[in-house]
Every structure is written in C-alpha cells, then in structure tokens.
C-alpha cells in the first residue's frame, strides 16, 4: 500500500537495501534473538558433576525438567503470583492516573499546564534505581518527613511491611512513569480535531459526555499502547525489590521471578534453571500482551 516500486529495478537496488537493513538485523540477531534462542536451549539442559565430583561435569538433555522444577518450586510459584498481584495493582493505577491527569490538563482549565507537564515528566528521567533509593528513604520513619507527619497526627503507616510492600513498589513505578504515559495520552488528545469538540459543545454536550463519548473513544489506541507497555514493564520487576531488600525482611531473594532467576544464575550456580525461569517470564509477557490485545480488538475496531 505504501510503496510500489518498479520490480525490474530490484536487482540494482539490492546492495543499498542490504546496506540499510543489515546493520540492525545483524545486531538484532546477535543481541536479541541469540540470547532468547540460547536461553531456550539452555533451559532444556542440565549440568551435573559426574561421579564424586572428579572429571568434567556432564551436560545432559532433560527437555522440560527445569520447567517442572521451576513450576513445582513453591517459592518460584509464589513469585509468579506476586508478579500477577503487582500487575493487578499497577496497571489499573497507572492507566487511570495517566489518563486522569491527561484529561484534566486537556479540559483547558488548568493553570500553567506546560509547567505541570514538564514537572510530571521529570521523574521519567530518574533511573529506577535512584527512584528506589529516594523512595527507600521516604519509606523508613527515621528519614521520611511524610511518615513523621502522619505519625504526629496519629496515623502509623509501615510501607515496607509484608502486607504493604507491593504497594510501596507500585508507588515507585507509578511515580516514575505516570508522567511519561500522561504525555503520550496528552499528545493523542491534542490530535483530536477542535471542530469535533466545538460541535459537541454546540449540541449542548456536557464536559463529562464530551470526555466520555468523544475523547475517550478517540484516544483508545494510545490507552491500549500505554496499557501494553505497562504490562511489559511490570514483568521486568527486579530493580525495586533488589534495592529495597536491605531495608525490609518482607522481600526475599525470590521475591519476583527475575530476582529468582538472577539468584539461580549467579548465587546458586544453576544457569539452566535460571534460563527456564527467564523463558517462563517471557512467555507470560507474550500471553499477557496478546491476551490483552485480543480482548480489546474483539470489541470494535482494531487498535494494533
């Protein structure tokens, strides 16, 4: 649809085409596809030291043994459950916050909207590690002005207790990315033709019904994009629990699947099991993303 170039020119253009395509394709194969293939292959192997530990260790093909081992390990299954719970908390929170703020700014009644936009976007530039270090200080009573003020008025909150720590982590992710997602959604709102809003207003539509019947349907593709990226983001959960770990006993070394895989690979010396765990996370990611896209594509127009 986009380009119909004369076919007979094709041969002459081949070298240029290769020169444009190859650098990325080669890098993509080496640093993206190869690790995935390698992980899949490794996940079907097991290394056992032979005999009494003398001689080289043997590598054997065990097919799905590592997957069975991972999925029957209560700690790993618990980490998967935690990941689902985390997605369940963060994804709606993120989408509602980002969309809510974008719609508020889009009403045109906000004071200093540009300033707010820059301000909300700023945390995106703060690396997750540093954001976690900062929030870590704000989560312990000794350094947190927020907890101190709350405690002074009689409210004692313990963000890093086992029951609340998942919310504490979700808050760090929300802080970091809500503004970025808001900017994406604002751009989509900006693209709605002014005549459309004006016509609706002329017809006596209220602010609510303009939001509900005009703005929301038109920014739906961007909302879906934000949702999918947030889902993928939640599956990467690793840095925040790793950095918060020294501050609380509520975070174990297998708190998230990625943390479990990291520990299997580097502390427990079982890269094969680690590979299986990584593959499980990737499969989960695809299942989530495609499941969600199917769900939204089924109702009405295709978005992706």
């Amino acid at each position: 649809m986009t380009t119909i170039l004369p076919v007979r020119r094709r041969t002459r253009r081949r070298p240029a085409l290769w020169a444009l395509l190859l650098p990325f394709v080669v890098m993509f194969l080496l640093f993206f596809v190869a690790p995935i293939v390698y992980a899949i292959v490794q996940s079907t192997l097991a290394t056992r030291s032979s005999g009494l530990g003398f001689g080289p260790p043997e590598t054997t093909f065990v097919l799905l043994d590592n997957y069975v081992r991972a999925l029957t390990d209560p700690a790993f299954v618990a980490s998967l459950g935690r990941l689902l719970a985390f997605s369940g908390i963060l994804v709606p929170l993120m989408v509602v916050t980002a969309l809510g703020l974008a719609l508020l700014l889009d009403t045109g009644r906000a004071r200093a909207p540009r300033f707010f936009r820059v301000l909300a976007f700023a945390p995106y530039g703060v690396p997750g590690v540093i954001a976690t270090l900062l929030w870590g200080f704000l989560y312990i009573p000794a350094t947190s002005p927020v907890l101190q003020v709350l405690s002074a008025v009689g409210i004692d909150v313990v963000p890093l207790a086992s029951g609340t720590v998942l919310f504490a982590i979700a808050n760090i992710a929300l802080w970091g990315f809500a503004g970025y997602n808001m900017v994406i959604l604002l751009a989509a709102l900006d693209a709605i033709p002014g005549e459309l809003r004006e016509a609706a207003r002329m017809d006596g539509a209220s602010m609510w019904s303009i939001t509900w019947h005009i703005k929301l349907p038109l920014v739906r593709p961007s909302v879906i994009l934000v949702t999918v990226f947030t889902i993928i983001g939640t599956l990467q959960l690793f840095v925040e629990p790793l950095v918060l770990q020294p501050l609380t006993t509520a975070i174990s070394s297998t708190y998230t699947p990625n943390l479990a895989a990291y520990n299997q690979a580097f502390s427990q010396g079982n890269p094969n099991l680690a590979a299986a765990m990584a593959v499980i996370v990737a499969v989960l990611g695809f299942a989530f993303s495609f499941g969600f896209l199917r769900l939204v594509n089924r109702k009405g127009n295709r978005a992706w």
Binding site: I36, Y38, I232, A265, A282
Partner: peptide, 23 residues
C-alpha cells in the same frame, strides 16, 4: 521481518540480560 522486530518490543529486557551474559 517487521513482525519479528515488533515482537522484540514485547520481550522484557530482563529476559535478555541473563542469557546474554553467558553468551
């Protein structure tokens, strides 16, 4: 080709890092 590359967008970066280390 485009679909495969697009699929790459959906792969969590954490999944790549561990096997890449061993490679």
């Amino acid at each position: 080709l485009f679909s495969v590359i697009l699929g790459g967008v959906l792969v969590p970066a954490t999944v790549i890092a561990l096997p890449l280390y061993f490679l």
